[in-house]
Amino acid sequence: MNLISDILFWVFSVAAVVTGLLVFITDSMVRAAYWLMASFVAVGGILMILDAQFLGLILILMMAGEMTIMAIFMVMFMMNPAGLNPMTMVHQHRTSIVAGAGAFVALAAVGLLAEFPDRPVPPGVDPTVDLGVELLGESMLIFESAGVALLAVMIGAVALVSKRGRYGIAEEGSEEPSLEMSEE
């Protein structure tokens, strides 16, 4: 059993990192969005191996909708919606590679070199029950704050994207934005 979960852990880990890289390598925007989702699913799998079953599944559940929206936004807002043509759109590429590698090395060094207390989850604990009690018990205020923040964000997002102004449709009579590139 331990061997199986070890193998699964390494499979999911490699899958998470490789699919994460593929997001920025692939030429198709729908593929990019769903590679990212594959990365999330792999991390969800790791969370399930770590006994955080509920969190892993919720992560997978959330990402299905979010990545679908992302794929559609990619198709809507990219200048080249055909999607299977080369699509490398990068700037400050070398700096970014150095920054990414630097972040990885620094964080991995912290993970490998720092001393963390070795206190695993004791057997017999049901993490889902624990989480539920915590969310609606001692930490209810934090949970509620997250809920209120989400509500505020929802209102803000609707205000940002809504076309309807105070006196009806805001863009009445105006033109839709064209797909042509505007002059720099």
């Binding site: 769903y34 989702m37 599944l57 919720i58 997978i60 559940l61 299905a64 909708g65 990545m67 679908t68």
Partner: peptide, 8 residues
């Protein structure tokens, strides 16, 4: 989770 992935 499985059913919401149907969208995908």
């Amino acid at each position: 989770a499985a059913l919401l992935q149907v969208m995908v």
